[in-house]
């Protein structure tokens, strides 16, 4: 059985998902997500030991493509989409930490 969802869980998840929530939203989402998870508890009582999880509806395997170069997009088109660009690159505000 899984324990009830807490406010701090929702706050943590929001941070992982890069969303910021007001106090009221935090309250509301904790309640709503809690209800959904409670509904999902009908699954947690099932004994599914040994059942193979299905991540794909069909058992296709080895779908590959030939290693042949295709046309890339034009850089002008690519950078025209960018909220900010400089010197042929996408520009972003400062990055605080190294990549994990």
């Amino acid at each position: 059985m899984t324990e009830a969802l807490r406010r701090e869980d929702v706050a943590h998840v929001a941070k992982l998902a890069r969303l910021s929530l007001s106090e009221e939203e935090l309250e509301l989402y904790t309640e709503q997500l809690g209800q959904i998870l409670e509904h999902a508890n009908d699954m947690s009582t099932l004994d599914l030991e040994g059942v193979v999880p299905t991540a794909h509806p069909f058992g296709l395997i080895n779908v590959v493509r030939d290693d042949i170069v295709r046309l890339s997009l034009s850089r002008d088109v690519v950078l025209a989409m960018a909220p900010d660009a400089e010197d042929g690159r996408f520009a972003v505000p400062r990055i605080m930490g190294e990549a994990p």
Binding site: M43, L46, L48, P53, T54
Partner: peptide, 10 residues
């Protein structure tokens, strides 16, 4: 658990 239920469904 949901992925296993998916198997049961299939």
């Amino acid at each position: 658990q949901a992925l296993k239920v998916r198997t049961q469904m299939i």
